[in-house]
Amino acid sequence: MSNATTGTEPHIECVDLVRIFSAEGVEVQALQGLTLRVERGELTAIVGASGSGKSTLLSILSGLDVPTAGRARVAGHDLLTMRAAERTAYRRRTVGFVWQQTARNLVPYFTVEENVAMALAVARFPRAGRRDRIGEVLEPLGIADLAGRLPIELSGGQQQRAAVAVALANEPQVLFADEPTGELDALNSEVVLEALRDVNERLGVTVLIVTHDASVSSHVRRTVQIRDGRTSTEVLRSTRTNEYGRSVQHAEEFAVLDRVGRLQLPQDYLTALGLKDRVRLGLETDRVEIRPTRPEGEESE
């Protein structure tokens, strides 16, 4: 499992992250001790159902929200202790964002070029170098010829690629994408996800995609499942060469063990074995066994 594999500091690290919202006397615990570790240059998808806490996690990672408790670090920035100035610098140069809706990615009355320029202007990028920089980010995404168009004059896929361009304007170390394919058809989704993978591979940018779309996981090496405000399982994909010398995709699912030894069993496991309330744990030399608790008569057999 990746969050236990290296001793060096991870690029994104969340430990026991808790976020409680209080509104009109009602408390909602959106994150309940989430732990996540992403290494530099990884392309990771975080998948979860609606209300699982993935958007809250992204809000915290992007510096737009502050956790109630726990630890969260991105590229060396401690998100809990960050002051306003550091937070601003963090948003300007450390991280980039791509959201689901165009309205949250692009200023509708700015052209693509001006949208990138705005991100540069916000980060006080020298004016003389801006035009070159705009070219640098638009070109690899294949939208250089759309530079003078308004967002409304672009297709959904083009809009999202423009959004990626804007997010990359200030050479961020980490790119967060919140449901980047949520409003796109399959073909355009493919294009956008490929663009994100390209960014990850070509520029070495750590990419974290948050989505409820399970099909996204086929485009990334690592998929983290969130359930009830906690990371529950992880799927790691790798390409291996089989005995015939062919490359085959290999996917392996892991449960995530937190710092104090808690883990969530996948729902289908629980259903299949009728695991409920109490289970039996058994420690073997190389594994831990979990067995359902049976009625006394059965058990004695």
Binding site: S62, L64, A84, A85, T88, A89, Y90, R91, R92, R93, F97, A103, R104, N105, L106, V107, P108, M118, A119, V122, A123, V166, N170
Partner: peptide, 12 residues
């Protein structure tokens, strides 16, 4: 929306 976007992009 523009202000929110600028703030997210790091506008102080």
């Amino acid at each position: 929306s523009t202000l929110a976007l600028a703030a997210a992009r790091g506008a102080g």
